[in-house]
Design a protein around this nucleic acid. Sequence first.
DNA 1: TTGTAAGCGTTATCAT
DNA 2: ATGATAACGCTTACAA
Lengths: 333, 333
Amino acid sequence: MTRANRDDVARLAGVSTAVVSYVINNGPRPVAQATRERVLAAMDELSYRPNASARALKLARTSVIGLLMSDITNPFFSEFAMFLQGQAHARGYGLMIANTRQENAEETAELQSMLARGVDGIAVYGARRPETLSAIVRSGVRAVSMDWHLTASDVPSIGIDDYGATTQAVEHLLGHGHSEVAFIAGTDDLTLRVRAWSDTMRTRCTPERLAQLRVTGDFTREGGYDAATTLLELPDPPRAIFVSTDVQAFGALAAVRDLGLSVPADVAIVSFDGTNASAFTSPPLTAIRIPQDRIAQLCIEKLTSVPSAEPMHSTFPHELVIRESCGCHPRSM
Amino acid sequence: MTRANRDDVARLAGVSTAVVSYVINNGPRPVAQATRERVLAAMDELSYRPNASARALKLARTSVIGLLMSDITNPFFSEFAMFLQGQAHARGYGLMIANTRQENAEETAELQSMLARGVDGIAVYGARRPETLSAIVRSGVRAVSMDWHLTASDVPSIGIDDYGATTQAVEHLLGHGHSEVAFIAGTDDLTLRVRAWSDTMRTRCTPERLAQLRVTGDFTREGGYDAATTLLELPDPPRAIFVSTDVQAFGALAAVRDLGLSVPADVAIVSFDGTNASAFTSPPLTAIRIPQDRIAQLCIEKLTSVPSAEPMHSTFPHELVIRESCGCHPRSM
DNA sequence: TTGTAAGCGTTATCAT
DNA sequence: ATGATAACGCTTACAA
């Protein structure tokens, strides 16, 4: 039972192949109602499904967009993937997903794989090689970057005000009476978050202490666990920590608990991302929420609509969601 | 700068188009070393990249496989997606992901979208409509199901011994001195888990109590939260709960905490899935671990290698990972 | 070892 | 309103 093609449908409906196309695509020529119905009946009869490859070859586009991201198991990224998939589907696009596992080599390989498959555009979130964006551009494929730290003047980017959000988070902790706020960073610099934190803290402690209060870890639970452990085993451990991503905060919570301490009584924590998962930790995390749904929507728009003179960089408003980990929530007082 | 095609390369290298193909595909005819180098040089010179659509049209396969799953933000599924993506990539396949959001309508729509895009095979994990599997089969696309509860005799399936694993988990809790173990189920019946639990508990309580101890919730944190709340607000609340998935357990942990109780002192919990995330909750979850990596590997094998007379259903061994939520871990005693 | 050319299933132009 | 037909870029049988 080999699959029916357009010729079979045309033959059965007693029309030419062109008419079948007109019916399928609602154009570019009109088709008489009676004819259309005969064609539709024939398609149904033969369980006809258009061949996507042939169509893509002819139209020179696949209607598939790619998402290149660093870690699909990180809820921050998987929530974005969910939104992006929904938006893509709504516009008739499929979504192909690639995972770099936060490794340069995989980033290159996965990107090549996507390009080789002829995706019409690529969304990049969590990449680390500047080369990645320029390679996409060079290949003639459209790109949108959610990676603030990767600069590429010819690629539109979308994000939030990282500097402002971090400042707000750190000041929120300072407002709770903490004189020091430590910082758990990622292995890839989230430059603006680091800078905002140091700008806020610089006047409050010595450069030595500042260096001590900043610990780097992978963007994983394990990374956050280790980083928090390092901080809390300091001779003079901080009582407040700003964690630059939710997954790291999940790890930090586990570390605090394993040291027999509690959040927020012994250590106050504010995180960054505001994933749904961050609302279900013990205690729930106070966090800067990034509006992933809106970012995904704009991302698909930029990827699929005709290029325009829109701003190259779009910034969405963030929100500090107060939950229990920082200490000012009614439940934690 | 329109993209170079095979003709351009052939012209520049001074060979026929066939030779270019032979070089790209390493066959089916041999090519002289000198010629090969000229071709490679020309490809490089023109930044030539083969057109995947044309290739797919000619070969009648896309080298893309699809993953139809219920919720990409559920770590259980996203971890599987990660493994599947790795395995697929290793074999030269791309992965297209579809998300059903646990809704029948989306399941149908996403499946159609994948079929329309001509994927070579589809992995199904977390589907709820029996129709889904048969629709894939009818379309002539290969399928592998990780959904034990969807029966389709002509589709290979992969899983673990759900009945045995559940029995083991429930008995583990009973072994801690609990006379009753409640059960948080999903909205889609994980039939074997339900049956194993009731078979174990039936002899220990009245049918009325049995019904009371079984609560149903979405496969989400919220679902687990609500279900656990219902259980714990019972006049005579259970002291031990078996939760049928990790995400629901995450919610259950939050519910226990919000009621001012603690795990495992007031309520012991054993979960099912054993995601990486389950190792970082407070307290870490004792859970049945499903070997997603091995399942993903076999899944890709079945999807991409020639159909053989292998067993239709493959069962992998599970493992009860003892952590702190059940109460017998050194740290929690 | 290399070249020629048919054909994969579409779309859309140009006739009718 | 409908039909005939030339691409789209590739693979491969067959010829040389």
